[in-house]
């Protein structure tokens, strides 16, 4: 049986987009002959000559270029080598791409791939999660696929959208996460969350790589008799509050997990919405679990406990169940 990884799905989606839509082209550092720092574009330049273009180390210019190309009718697909470096393009993303449709009525259909999140040894500048920053700004769609099939379908859908999309792909999942199909399971559009494990005692909301940590925690707690429901947000903007609320209505308890820094962010947004709209549904104060409030450390001993871990998630769920 064929086996596909998360990054295979990203490569295949890019291949299929290039094949099916002549408006699509790829621009980024080392994406051409080299095939990208993570090999997400391997072989694509040879198959689609002239449409997979190497860029200088100029994140601002890369996104600025994409905005211009989009205005002229193209569907640029930009690879930022590491999500962390998108801070250099911050201005073009939030002030140019994000404001353009509201200001001028002309949409900017660009997709920016952000290889996100930590892997051991990557350190402070190759490990960041940027989704909360971009979700804060108007006009930007932010997606965080957690599965092989979502990595495929959400990249296809991102490029098809007329709005700018930050596609946050998790580096830890690249080769670790495997599936026998890229289109397995129920298709959901951007903006819909998925209940990935049903339960009745508590709801754990997660996204990106943390979905898998949450599932492992739910599995462990099942051995103790707790039935934990796990919701994969899939996209953080738009945020599917309805699915989260429906789950909380069933369980009465909420823990939201994110790999980002703890001040504000997606976990705070989810908790704030549930408290504001569903206070009466809650049997206990909703909880958040995030990374620590320091830069992402380099050494594996530090890195492992900087982000939420199986242990810290289990502890947080126990705490929630006892509140």
């Amino acid at each position: 049986m064929a086996e596909f990884t998360y990054i295979d799905a990203i490569r295949q989606a890019q291949h299929d987009l290039l094949e099916q839509d002549e408006r699509v082209f790829i621009y980024g550092q080392d994406v051409g002959k080299f095939g990208g720092a993570f090999k997400a574009t391997q072989g694509l330049q040879a198959k689609f000559p002239g449409r997979v273009i190497d860029s200088p180390i100029s994140e601002d210019a890369m996104i600025g270029m994409a905005i211009g190309a989009a205005v002229e009718g193209m569907r640029p697909l930009i690879e930022v080598q590491f999500a962390d470096f998108s801070s250099v393009a911050f201005n073009q993303i939030v002030n140019h791409a994000g404001t353009h449709f509201y200001r001028t009525g002309v949409p900017i259909p660009i997709t920016v791939r952000l290889p996100s999140g930590g892997t051991p040894g990557s350190g402070p500048f190759h490990s960041q999660m940027m989704e909360a920053i971009y979700a804060h700004y108007p006009g930007l769609v932010v997606v965080t696929p957690a599965t092989v099939s979502d990595a495929y379908s959400m990249l296809i859908d991102s490029v098809k959208l007329d709005d700018p999309v930050l596609y946050c792909e998790h580096k830890f999942l690249y080769r670790w996460l495997k599936s026998d199909s890229m289109t397995k399971g129920e298709y959901l559009p951007i903006g819909k969350a998925r209940i990935v494990r049903a339960g009745k005692h508590a709801t754990v909301v997660a996204y990106s790589a943390m979905v898998h940590e949450a599932l492992r925690a739910a599995e462990r707690l099942a051995g103790e008799g707790w039935e934990v429901e796990v919701v994969d947000l899939r996209s953080v903007k738009p945020l599917d509050t309805d699915t989260v609320m429906a789950s909380v209505a069933r369980t009465g308890r909420l823990l939201v997990i994110g790999e980002s820094f703890p001040w504000g962010g997606v976990t705070a947004e989810v908790v704030s919405r549930v408290v504001a709209e569903g206070f009466h549904l809650l049997d206990a104060p909703p909880q958040r679990l995030n990374a620590r409030d320091t830069p992402v450390p380099y050494h594996p001993n530090l890195w492992e406990v900087h982000r939420p871990t199986l242990e810290s998630i289990c502890q947080a769920i126990h705490n929630l169940l006892n509140l």
Binding site: D60, A61, G64, M65, G68, A69, V71, E72, P76, H96
Partner: peptide, 30 residues
């Protein structure tokens, strides 16, 4: 009127330079 070849500037100086570059690159691809 960006769709008519005249982008609407943002206040951040220099941002239009790569945008015009991208408009030209699009035309090259097309």
């Amino acid at each position: 009127r960006p769709a008519e070849g005249m982008p609407a500037m943002i206040s951040h100086l220099g941002a239009l330079i790569p945008m015009v570059g991208g408009m030209l690159m699009a035309r090259r691809l097309q």
